[in-house]
């Protein structure tokens, strides 16, 4: 199961549980007035509910924060650095720094499999997204391309193949066609 499927299952489970709780609560309200007895000790139950929810949230925070992309491979030296300059509606990619006055990129980019790589991503005009998709059209990782700033995205590709880059920040009418690719081998 990949990350996307796991996220969907968690969400659908929550969806079903919340819907069931509301349906049963609604059903319980259809009783005759003389049988209305409500919830016993609501303050106490609310307190326990809040404590339980707080514990769940703290556990989730402590588990997920260390997995944030900012810490990915931060203690390793990248085997390759790829410079990315985005502009309407192209991505220039190069293993050399790109001159913003005369932007140009390499014909093809080869990334070594199983080794950390760093993408240094910026934009020459408006905000763009830098979304890396695998050959199954699943989003692997991403960062933003923002004018005036360089976002450093580190990743390790364990599966060889062709990866596609799609713009994931709306940048104008031709936004869906802004794309390029690189090869991992």
């Amino acid at each position: 199961m990949n990350d996307h499927q796991f996220i969907l299952i968690i969400f659908l489970a929550a969806f079903i549980i919340i819907t069931a709780v509301f349906f049963l609560t609604y059903r319980s309200s259809l009783r005759p007035e003389e049988k209305s007895d409500g919830i016993k000790k609501p303050l106490q139950k609310r307190f326990y509910f809040l404590i339980a929810l707080t514990i769940v949230l703290v556990i989730l925070l402590s588990v997920t924060i260390p997995k944030s992309p900012y810490f990915k491979y931060s203690d390793q030296t990248p085997a390759k650095v790829v410079f990315v300059d985005a502009m309407q509606y192209y991505f220039f990619m190069s293993e050399q720094a790109i001159d913003p006055a005369k932007p140009s990129g390499a014909d093809s980019i080869i990334i070594p499999v199983g080794q950390p790589v760093e993408f240094r991503v910026t934009s020459l005009d408006v905000n763009h997204g830098f979304g890396i998709y695998n050959s199954d059209a699943q989003l692997v990782t991403q960062t933003q391309a923002m004018p005036g700033y360089v976002n450093r995205l580190r990743w390790k590709f364990d599966t060889p193949g062709t990866y596609h880059i799609l713009c994931l920040e709306y940048c104008g009418a031709n936004h869906p066609n802004m794309r390029t690719s690189f090869i991992v081998k």
């Binding site: 609560t25 309200s29 259809l30 009783r31 007035e33 049988k35 209305s36 007895d37 409500g38 919830i39």
Partner: peptide, 11 residues
């Protein structure tokens, strides 16, 4: 939770 308390087992 307040909405739940308002509705649950109440006519």
């Amino acid at each position: 939770f307040s909405v739940f308390v308002l509705v649950f087992r109440n006519h």
